[in-house]
Simulated assay, not measured.
Amino acid sequence: MIADNYEQIEAIVLNVSLLALFLLMGYAVHDVLQKNDVPKVGRYVAYGVLFLGSLGFIAKGIIQLFFTSSGV
């Protein structure tokens, strides 16, 4: 059974790992910004860059989903 679902299990583990990585990066950025008294504008920029980085992975997943469902 595991051999049949190997690719699906691998994709799920990769997505969960990326989610955990981005959550940990967000926590690290939040901690650094909190300790150094960064102004609001700097916080918005830092969180925006982190969000845009994760948005690329989300877009990749959506595009990959469309390609696999259409048979490409």
Rank of each mutant, 00 (worst) to 15 (best):
M1N: 04
M1Y: 08
I2A: 10
A3T: 13
D4M: 09
N5H: 10
Y6E: 09
Q8K: 07
Q8E: 12
I9T: 04
A11G: 01
A11K: 09
I12R: 12
V13W: 04
V13K: 06
N15M: 12
N15V: 07
N15L: 15
V16W: 14
S17E: 09
L19R: 11
L19G: 10
A20Y: 11
F22K: 06
F22M: 15
L23G: 15
L23M: 15
L23H: 10
M25I: 09
G26I: 04
Y27R: 10
V29M: 12
V29D: 09
V29C: 05
V29Q: 07
H30L: 11
D31P: 01
D31A: 07
L33K: 00
Q34D: 09
Q34S: 07
V38P: 09
P39I: 05
G42P: 05
R43K: 13
R43V: 14
Y44W: 15
Y44P: 01
A46R: 00
Y47C: 00
Y47D: 04
Y47L: 03
V49T: 03
L50A: 12
F51I: 13
L52S: 13
S54M: 11
L55V: 07
G56I: 13
G56N: 05
A59E: 02
G61I: 00
I63G: 01
I63A: 11
I63H: 00
Q64R: 10
Q64D: 14
L65E: 02
L65G: 00
F66Q: 02
F66L: 06
F66R: 02
F66E: 01
S70V: 08
S70T: 04
V72Q: 05
